[in-house]
Design a protein around this nucleic acid. Structure first.
Lengths: 225, 225
DNA sequence: CGTTGCATTGAAATCCCTCAAGCGAGGTGG
DNA sequence: CCACCTCGCTTGAGGGATTTCAATGCAACG
């Protein structure tokens, strides 16, 4: 539960970052961005910090999370290279964002995005499409958390990660069992047990805890309801 | 599980609806809309129908839902008078929408909305803000489904409904225990038991199964984690 | 080679679900 | 007007999936 997340945030670090790359949204929007690096478990932004920046993963992986007072945590999403995050319509973030491993992130001021969006209706639409895509992913997650069994959740997760990460059968999971558990609404032990179960059933193979090989996608898909 | 949802849909009914009212989004967007009526459990649109219309509740209540092959159901949201629904960025709906009770709905063509949005950047932004608000609600639901106990879910639900419906202490729930259960990721029996529990604890009173009086909001809020 | 952090495994407990019966309000027909 | 039916809700008993608690394994690293 206590992930020991370090407390430096982008906002505090962003004293004078130098524009070094272009952040691309869809194929219409392109903005000059600052590159920043974050270490494992470092906080990129906090749960109710003002949403003054928008981010894109270049290298590494990011999770968003929300905490209850007693330490329970819900991971909202995982972001992989190319993914955008932290783009909110409201004034402040509703989840915190943390680096899962060492990663490189592009950052643009939200005002820059707003300016682009109010100048160009197509750009504004792009922003809407982006938010809508996030919404659709959350809707899938809703069904998963509300109505699926532990095996179904883990199978769905593996298939999704495989699709997003490599499309090959070998998947490198950047996140810990703890992150997976808090994403799927399970405990770390249950996730581990299901992994072992899938291994025994020859549906997957494990080369190290975080290196999964999908041996039988059909079996996984069948479990995935 | 089997809600016996009737299969007529807005698209099929929308042969020649007459514009009778204005559908308002935020305070900038106002579009001429057709009024339609739906009976209890009538389908407004189906799970993968083209998203050619956008809807607003005038009277009554609407739920969105998604089904698994074996009948498991996840209710995505409840929509009350004033609420907009069915507004997607993608080409088709991802949940079905069904009338909870007899209700009156305003309908506008999506192309009309698109036109307004591409003409006016402020209107486009309004659309984004709307989608973003839905997203935020789903994020709350995520934490609820992933990490909260049955009591916490029910308490949170009651407080939310009270806030949305009357802001007074008496709440008329338009939806059945079944709808509530499928919204909260629980069974109907568990929901009923928690209601009884809250009644025994003097946190609520029941004047009929769907007429709740919040006797002790603090107690509910305390349970709500 | 011990330490540290993450992952796995086992046993017991728990929360919620399943199955089953009973209850009550509303509607319908006799 | 009352009996009866139906549908939704409540309540109880038992069971099961997942959690909790606890111990062990294992790989990376100093």
């Amino acid at each position: 539960m206590d992930m020991n997340v370090s407390t430096s945030s982008a906002a505090r670090k962003a004293g004078g970052p130098v524009p070094t790359a272009w952040l691309r949204i869809g194929d219409r929007l392109e903005l000059p961005a600052a590159a920043m690096s974050f270490g494992r478990n470092e906080e990129i932004y906090g749960e109710s910090e003002p949403a003054d920046f928008v981010y894109q993963v270049v290298r590494g992986a990011v999770r968003t999370a929300r905490y209850l007072e007693d330490g329970r945590r819900q991971v909202g999403a995982f972001f992989l290279p190319g993914d955008l995050f932290g783009c909110e319509a409201g004034p402040s973030h509703r989840f915190s964002a943390e680096a899962i491993d060492d990663c490189e992130i592009l950052v643009v001021r939200r005002t820059a995005l707003d300016k682009a969006a109010s100048a160009d209706a197509q750009a504004a639409r792009q922003l809407w499409v982006l938010t809508s895509a996030h919404l659709e992913q959350l809707q899938d997650q809703l069904l998963l958390l509300g109505r699926m069994t532990a095996s179904e959740r883990v199978s769905a997760f593996l298939l999704d990660m495989a699709k997003r990460r490599s499309s090959a059968d070998a998947v490198d999971l950047p996140m810990s069992r703890n992150d997976i558990a808090d994403y799927l609404g399970l405990t770390i032990e249950t996730v581990s047990r299901i992994f072992s179960q899938l291994k025994r059933a020859q549906a997957i193979a494990l080369k190290g805890a975080r290196n999964i090989v999908l041996r039988d996608r059909e079996a996984l898909a069948a479990i995935d309801a």
